[in-house]
Amino acid sequence: MRTTMPTAATTVAIAALAAAILTPAHAGAATLPTHAGAAAPPTRAGATAPPRLTGCGPGELCLWEKAGFKGVRQTFELSDIDIESCVALPEGGSAEALANRTGRPVTVYQSAECAETGEFNTYPGSGTWAPESPYRVRAFKVWES
């Protein structure tokens, strides 16, 4: 099944999430958007600050091993990626969160061969932050704009 992310509603949710994550903890309370079935994040009273994302710069695709931008991060620079070619993650590697800062659309695949028989989603390159993929990402393609 092919789905394209984000819709207008998820674009707003992603922007709110990115703003909350990238805002210093002392800047005031932030409420992150939640998805159906997801636990609401703790509020300022007795809560820990949201994580700060660093190290994923312009022109990069960053993939995190675990949801919520946690675990080992792999970074792929646009200058080192063959456009419209399948890039498999290292053997046994996968990701559950991603940030697309390439400036180009990126499709992530459940299949390590970029097969469309498994799940796949396309994320715009305008600074998309996806804290939780609906499946384990094993490969990706970067497209011409």
Rank of each mutant, 00 (worst) to 15 (best):
T107F: 02
T128C: 12
T75L: 04
E60Y: 03
G118W: 00
Y123M: 10
I21W: 12
L63N: 00
K70S: 13
V108Y: 02
V142N: 02
A88T: 15
A18R: 15
E96G: 04
E119R: 08
C114V: 06
A27W: 11
E65C: 03
L89W: 04
G127V: 11
G93C: 07
T43G: 12
A9L: 14
T23L: 11
G37N: 04
W129Y: 15
Q110T: 00
A139V: 11
A20R: 05
C86D: 07
V137P: 01
P24A: 08
L61D: 00
E84T: 07
T128N: 05
T7D: 10
T11S: 14
Q74T: 11
A49D: 08
Y123F: 15
G93K: 10
E113T: 14
A30P: 02
A88M: 10
A49S: 14
M5I: 03
A19I: 02
P24G: 04
S145M: 12
P41C: 05
P42G: 13
E119A: 12
E144F: 04
V106Q: 01
E119P: 00
T11P: 00
A36G: 07
K66W: 09
A115K: 11
L32S: 01
P105Y: 09
E65P: 00
G57T: 08
R73I: 09
P6G: 07
S94Q: 14
Q74E: 12
G125F: 07
F76V: 03
T48V: 08
R136G: 10
T43Y: 02
E113Y: 05
A67T: 14
T11Y: 10
I21Y: 14
T31Q: 06
A13N: 08
Q110L: 03
A36C: 03
G28Y: 01
A25C: 15
S126T: 13
P50L: 10
T3M: 15
T43W: 01
W64P: 00
L78V: 06
A13G: 06
V12E: 13
P90L: 01
T107Q: 02
E144W: 03
P90I: 01
A25V: 10
R52F: 07
T117N: 08
L61F: 01
V87S: 03
P105F: 10
E96A: 14
Q110V: 01
E91K: 10
F69R: 00
A18Q: 15
L17Q: 08
T75I: 12
K66D: 13
G93I: 00
G93T: 07
L61C: 01
V12G: 08
Q74L: 14
M1Y: 10
R73Q: 11
A29I: 05
T128K: 01
G71Q: 04
L17K: 05
P24V: 04
E132M: 09
I14M: 12
K70A: 15
P105A: 13
A49G: 09
L89C: 08
P33F: 12
E84Q: 10
T54R: 04
A40Q: 10
A47E: 12
E132D: 13
D82S: 12
E119K: 04
A19W: 03
E96P: 00
R104D: 11
R101T: 10
P58L: 06
G103F: 08
P58V: 09
K141F: 03
S133Y: 03
T54V: 12
